[in-house]
């Protein structure tokens, strides 16, 4: 590969990556706020993971709902 080609690949790679990342980031912002507004997902509730972090506190969102219910009953 000659230097010219490397430079070209580098240039296009750089520009397209910036482009993709920027679009991705804006899409992500849009996604976050849209999910919140339409009630698909309440992101803000995840803050509670820090506040209600005692091992006996109720889960914000269970990883494995059934197993967890059993877990809670046992305790």
């Amino acid at each position: 590969m000659d230097m010219e080609l490397i430079r070209n690949i580098q240039g296009w790679g750089y520009v397209s990556m910036i482009f993709i990342i920027t679009i991705g980031l804006y899409a992500y912002i849009y996604h976050l706020y849209k999910s919140q507004r339409e009630g698909v997902k309440d992101y803000e509730k995840y803050s509670n993971m820090a506040l209600k972090d005692d091992i006996d506190d109720s889960l914000v969102e269970a990883k494995d709902p059934q197993k967890d219910e059993k877990d809670n009953e046992e305790r």
Partner: peptide, 8 residues
């Protein structure tokens, strides 16, 4: 883990 989502 029990919590499904990873905290920030």
């Amino acid at each position: 883990r029990r919590e499904k989502v990873l905290y920030i």
